[in-house]
Amino acid sequence: MPSRRRRREATVPDEVAPKRSRTQTPSKDTATEFSKKRCLTWFQEYSGPDDDCLGPEGMEKFCEDIGVEPENIVMLSLAFKLNAKRMGFFTAEEWMKGMTELQCDTITKLQNRLDYLRALLSDPTCFKNIYRFAFDFARDKDQRSMDIETAKAMLSLVLGKNWPLFSSFHQFLEQAKYKVINKDQWCNILEFSRAIQSDLSNYDEDGAWPVMLDEFVEWLKDQRGVSGESGMPT
């Protein structure tokens, strides 16, 4: 998930820590039963013994330990399972409740659950829930909408690799007047990406899409007209 800290620009890699071979004997670590005490001690390695919130510095170390970049979408899936309220932070309550559900109280156990967390993103219903969660997770809590820069980063994370029109939509947002995206717009972007063909052949001008998406279609048609293309986006 995008980090709020100022740090070096990084792409969103697909790779995580090397997977254990199926023929490899499970380690003693994974064979032990879940322990809430061990889980809390693990949390405190990143938060400090007297702090009930894991912040950006602890998050960076946590990601390093499990072998996942903070910008990797699997971190959004984990935040969803922890029902985290604030990007870049996990509270002790969120950690304990979520990790108990995942039955993870060590680094190795969580690494062995990464494939499960990634699989949630491949399930249409689960992905829709994670996508909707991402809006409230990433927005400033004193604002009802998400600022456009955060929205572009989050859309790149959740739709960038799976929506053929994402590159065009990103270009549209770059030149559009929008400074924020509200939740209705956010949810409809996902529905639009699933319903409308890349050539816009099934787009209905009388449909109930938000004005933003109607403007995107008009902009995209103009772009294709200028480039002399009528099919796939530029």
Rank of each mutant, 00 (worst) to 15 (best):
C53A: 13
C53T: 13
C53D: 06
G55V: 10
G55M: 11
P56A: 10
P56G: 08
P56V: 04
P56C: 09
E57I: 05
E57P: 01
M59F: 11
M59H: 09
E60M: 07
K61Y: 02
F62I: 05
F62M: 06
F62P: 11
F62K: 09
C63N: 11
C63A: 07
E64D: 12
E64P: 02
E64T: 15
D65Q: 02
D65N: 07
I66M: 06
I66R: 13
I66Q: 08
I66A: 03
I66H: 12
G67E: 08
G67A: 06
G67Y: 02
V68P: 00
V68A: 03
V68N: 01
E69A: 12
E69T: 00
E69I: 00
E69D: 11
P70E: 14
P70C: 04
P70D: 10
E71Y: 07
E71D: 13
E71C: 01
N72R: 14
N72L: 08
N72E: 09
I73E: 07
V74P: 15
V74E: 13
M75L: 15
L76D: 14
S77E: 10
S77R: 10
L78N: 12
L78I: 00
A79D: 09
F80M: 09
F80T: 12
F80K: 13
K81I: 14
L82C: 14
L82G: 13
L82W: 04
N83Y: 06
A84C: 05
A84R: 08
A84V: 12
A84K: 04
K85N: 05
K85P: 00
R86E: 10
R86K: 08
M87N: 09
M87W: 05
G88R: 08
G88W: 10
F89Q: 08
F90L: 01
F90R: 08
T91Q: 02
T91N: 02
T91K: 04
A92S: 15
A92P: 02
A92I: 12
A92E: 12
E93T: 15
E94G: 09
E94R: 11
E94I: 03
E94C: 11
W95P: 01
W95Y: 03
W95S: 01
M96N: 05
M96P: 00
M96T: 11
M96K: 08
M96D: 03
M96W: 06
K97I: 14
G98P: 06
G98V: 01
G98F: 04
G98C: 06
M99V: 00
M99L: 04
M99Q: 03
M99E: 01
M99T: 01
